[in-house]
Nucleic acid binder design. Structure first.
Lengths: 176, 176
DNA sequence: ACCTGAACACCGTTCAAGT
DNA sequence: ACCTGAACACCGTTCAAGT
């Protein structure tokens, strides 16, 4: 006797995203997700192999959302950097998860695309990859430390951001 | 009737460090730590309020160890960057914990000292803090992404490292 | 064909009872 | 004064039994 689904994978992943942002990874329990989609925990294993796979799916959706932020910019390095930082401020837990979990190998490629194009615009195709990694590492590190509260020596964070962004642009455009 | 201690806080924290590096945060359970120091789990609560405090102590020791790496360099930005990266390679889990957990506010200050001095040497006292944050963010981001396997577009990672380091030095020494 | 209660192993934590 | 077994609440996961 067939029985209709009472929820869907999309709904489960969405509930996971919400719980993650509301209470961190520890709040993303199978029971909490199940309760949120109106089902009991064991039913989730029809949609998902285990909690780790659910976390990976949540990370993949976070990557897509971050990619959306990037796609909505003017495409300059400064615009992309600002957008990535803004995403980190709006969804700190998703941002952190992106750096710890490994989503499927395809999604990050879509995120890296805009950065790679902006870098190529600035330094040409030969150094585009290195330049993109240079910018990405700086932004990722800056936002990670910011979110972790690791900038503890006083001073203005916005100054540090503007300083870094300006130096990066100068470093990339200056003649060798 | 008094009873002698069968372990010590230092031993407990050391066991925590080892377990963390061997199997990640999930392997750092109270039972595993207890077993490693030859005691039962409830006894740990004589040394430590809860698991979170133990994690914070492990993070603090990781910060001290990282500081040791930095202190053993020539004190240049390049040397400090290389040493911090080397620490990340030797103790990836400790490195990750440093970015997620918050150790006591005093230890990071000792880590930041050498970087701040090297930055001041290069750009003068007015921009020392911003410059130090610039370098630190880049190195932190680079190593984090490296450890997470987030550099997925091929290319040589050592090239990307050298490229970034060289650009940073150029950006900091170039005239405004 | 999905959903569920019950069960199992494991975890963090508490506490009264041992020595 | 520390250590422990037992207990509790919670978690991820499995599975036979329901519909």
């Amino acid at each position: 006797v067939p029985a209709p689904e009472r929820t869907s994978l999309v709904e489960v992943v969405a509930a996971g995203c919400d719980l993650l942002e509301e209470g961190g990874p520890a709040a993303l329990t199978m029971q909490a997700v199940a309760a949120r989609v109106g089902v009991r925990a064991p039913s989730l294993y029809k949609k998902v192999r285990d909690r780790d796979e659910l976390l990976a799916l949540v990370a993949a959706r976070a990557a897509e959302d971050a990619g959306g932020h990037l796609a909505a910019t003017d495409g300059t390095l400064a615009g992309l950097a600002r957008a990535y930082r803004a995403f980190g401020h709006e969804r700190p837990e998703a941002f952190r998860l992106l750096l710890s979990a490994r989503p499927d190998p395809e999604t990050p490629r879509r995120v890296a695309g805009p950065v790679l194009r902006a870098a190529e615009e600035l330094v040409g195709p030969d150094q585009a990859l290195e330049a993109a990694r240079f910018v990405t590492a700086w932004v990722t590190g800056f936002v990670s430390m910011e979110l972790a509260g690791a900038f503890r020596l006083g001073g203005d964070l916005e100054d540090a951001w503007a300083y870094g962004l300006e130096r990066i642009q100068r470093a990339l455009t200056a003649p060798a």
